[in-house]
């Protein structure tokens, strides 16, 4: 138990004496304090913010754009003029086609982050509501809604995603659609399980007895109490989405050239490994790994902060 500073106590006494309304400390505020005390999570969050800034504004400091070919860095020149160097403006070097790797990494990081965030947003909005409704209403509705989730989960997702990309053409929109289609399924199950236990809490019964409408009960009493677990799961979902996108791009099915993504860059870089141009692999790979690690640490920190009993 931390000592309470004397000044804070005096302030509280004064407020009580004056009859002013005292500010309460919500569970969210408590969680924020615990999160702030978690070094690894805080550092990870800072790194993530930096990576996000890099993905958004990195293009401004790039000397080259993503598609212009530097002819001097082609062929046998790649190992010499394509090296990472400030003099040539290729901070991260060039890829095997002589294009600036710095600009391309910025672009790839942006795509990967977007895929992760879009997938996780769909999961949060659709999955949480779907699961909360299913768990709260219960009975036959619950059975039907959850069997739909089971059926969708049993379809091999990678196969469907590849089919989507083949039939409708390779585009980033199709990747968003595919990721959105599956990301909410697991979330719906988690939200339903939680909603089932929250439904039996006395405050939900109190709301029923007061006469609150069912939809309002879901939005006001169930969803806010789901929010902890949903936040944690959403943070841990982002890296999964990034990995799926990278895998698809690694197979060569992701975004269209000259657009790129981290997975595509890693795939191209790995193909050049034996020619002494390792930077083509290491820069995008480094960004991917750092992103995944930091997301996991932040998710872990959020879990500890939001659910202190459950460690």
């Amino acid at each position: 138990m931390a000592m309470v500073p004397r000044a804070a106590v005096q302030e509280l006494e004064a407020a009580l004496a004056a009859g002013q309304a005292v500010r309460g400390r919500s569970l969210w505020a408590d969680a924020r304090r615990r999160f702030m005390a978690n070094r690894a999570a805080l550092v990870s969050l800072a790194i993530l913010v930096l990576i996000a800034l890099f993905a958004i504004f990195g293009g401004l400091i790039a000397a080259w754009d993503i598609e212009t070919v530097d002819w001097s860095a082609l062929g046998t020149g790649a190992a010499v003029n394509g090296r990472p160097s400030f003099a040539t403006g290729h901070y991260f070097g060039t890829d095997q086609d002589g294009r600036d790797l710095f600009a391309r990494t910025v672009q790839g990081t942006r795509i990967s982050l977007m895929v992760g965030i879009v997938g996780s947003l769909v999961a949060v909005v659709v999955g949480t509501l779907y699961g909360a409704v299913s768990g709260f209403v219960g009975g036959r509705t619950d059975q039907v809604l959850m069997r739909i989730v089971d059926v969708m989960m049993s379809i091999p997702f990678m196969f469907v995603l590849i089919l989507l990309l083949v039939v409708f053409g390779r585009s980033i929109i199709m990747i968003f659609v595919g990721v959105g289609l599956i990301s909410w399924l697991e979330m719906a199950r988690i939200a339903r399980g939680q909603a089932l236990s929250i439904k039996n809490m006395e405050y939900v019964e109190a709301a029923v007895a007061i006469g609150v409408r069912p939809m309002t009960i879901i939005l006001r009493h169930i969803v806010p109490n789901l929010a902890g677990i949903v936040t944690v799961y959403a943070t841990l979902l982002i890296p999964n989405m990034i990995i799926i996108e990278s895998f698809i791009s690694f197979l060569g099915l992701g975004v269209q050239d000259p657009q790129t993504s981290l997975g595509a860059l890693i795939s191209r870089g790995a193909a050049q490994m034996q020619y002494g141009t390792l930077w083509m692999l290491l820069f995008p790979l480094g960004f991917l790994i750092v992103m995944l690690f930091t997301f996991f640490y932040v998710g872990d920190g959020l879990r500890d902060a939001l659910d202190p009993k459950d460690r």
Binding site: W28, Y203, A206, A209, R220, H221, P224
Partner: peptide, 19 residues
């Protein structure tokens, strides 16, 4: 329901912790 109200056994569990 406005005419019939209820008080519950577990005082803390009957209050939504997020409100």
């Amino acid at each position: 329901r406005r005419d019939v109200q209820m008080i519950f056994q577990d005082p803390l569990a009957a209050l939504n912790p997020r409100m």
